[in-house]
């Protein structure tokens, strides 16, 4: 349940930061969230981060691309040397996911490095 809540928080934050501020805030946001409320396992936080960022960027790209009939993504895919428009959409989702995933992992490890010696995080969920 807590993980689900973190996903919701990450999705909302990533959307807000990406929309109103700089895309790099997505990284910082997931970093902060996982620093404050890390999971027991790093791979869980990584997965939550990747999933949340990907969902936001991929969904947004898909909705926009669908409304546009793939006109722009097809043209830009050629510029980036990608085979087609959908690949660019997927790449967009990947970048969003990697950004928030790495932010989450950093937050998780920083939290863990501030730990008691037996490796138990200060705040674990």
């Amino acid at each position: 349940m807590k993980n689900l809540l973190k996903i919701v928080i990450l999705i909302c934050g990533t959307w807000l930061w990406s929309y109103y501020f700089d895309w790099r805030f997505s990284f910082i946001w997931s970093f902060v969230v996982m620093l404050l409320v890390p999971s027991r396992w790093s791979w869980v936080d990584l997965a939550i981060g990747i999933f949340s960022g990907s969902v936001v960027w991929l969904t947004a790209a898909l909705v926009i691309d669908g409304g546009n009939g793939g006109i722009l993504s097809t043209r830009l895919a050629e510029i980036f040397g990608l085979p087609n428009g959908p690949t660019l959409v997927i790449m967009c989702g990947l970048v969003g996911g990697i950004l928030t995933g790495l932010g989450a992992l950093c937050g998780h490890f920083l939290n863990n490095s501030l730990l008691i010696p037996n490796g138990t995080p200060k705040n674990t969920v």
């Binding site: 960027w57 947004a60 790209a61 830009l76 660019l88 790449m91 970048v95």
Partner: peptide, 11 residues
């Protein structure tokens, strides 16, 4: 490629 401020706003 930020879908909110980047190239996608021209789609």
């Amino acid at each position: 490629i930020n879908p909110f401020t980047g190239l996608w706003t021209q789609a």
